[in-house]
Amino acid sequence: MAKLTKEPDQKQPAHRVGLHTEQLVGRTQQIFFSAEEEENYFYPDSLTVDFAKRAEFDAAEMDSRQINLTIRQLMGEGHGTIVVHNPLAKHSLGVGILGRLQLHFEGSLGYFGCGLIDGPNIHIKGRVGWSCAENMLAGTVVIEKNAGSSFGAALRGGDLVCRGDVGGRTGIDMKGGTIIIGGRTGAFSGFMMQRGRLIVLGNAGKNLGDSMYDGIIYVGGRIESLGIDAVPAEMTELDVDWLNRKLKTYGLEAPKGAENLQKIVAGKRLWNYDNLEPAEKKIVL
């Protein structure tokens, strides 16, 4: 038989990020995807930068596309600290950054600010619109004022901090990481949450933690109502220690101390609806 068409090479970055190394046999006509071919794998925002190298620009006259391209260009030149003046609440700013970077927005962002990122430390002096830092994998995003709805939607990692108030559906479909709200949060926060921790130092709106699979919600103020299958739980020393350390990192404090936060977890009553039919259960369960 002809030699296999592709030798797995552990040195390839593609394999280091988890791509499979399985060998194929007897198929010579296949064209393989290779992460090393530039046309297949564009990775424009994962750049090596130097934090000491600082750049600033005024975004007042630029559109979202130009602002994102300028950030990328500056990262390409090795700038590790970038300050954006006058972002003027434009949408989709700072999205898709996949590397270390100190990014400062000296103003407010529109929808989807800093979404789809992995690694940067972002500081926003103003407010943010809907779905800030959605699907973030790692890094920190700190907002000084208020945030819109769907804050940290489907967050997978990193720390997302809003010192002010946020809208509804905060941490919806959250899969990991930590969201910290200095003020109050709206309705349906933690909706269908899967993992991670949501800390609300102020009040929480109605249906908190509705249909949550797992994860933990801590609330410092009043909870208007709990959602379906969200139940109170006992605080432990581990919780208190972790909360104190986490809040201290961002210069925040629980109003009556971390030990007095209310802890909400999944009741797990919705985990299994027992959906198999009687005849199927006999074989499957």
Binding site: S64, R65, H91, V95, L116, E134, S150, A153, R169, I172
Partner: peptide, 27 residues
């Protein structure tokens, strides 16, 4: 879930599509 976590209707979808394009460099 049946609804996207970060957008609701077609007007938000305009911006969501723009975000996806920005993240993938309009390629």
């Amino acid at each position: 879930p049946c609804r996207h976590p970060d957008w609701m209707g077609p007007d938000d979808m305009v911006i969501k599509i723009e975000e996806l394009r920005e993240a993938t460099d309009w390629q």
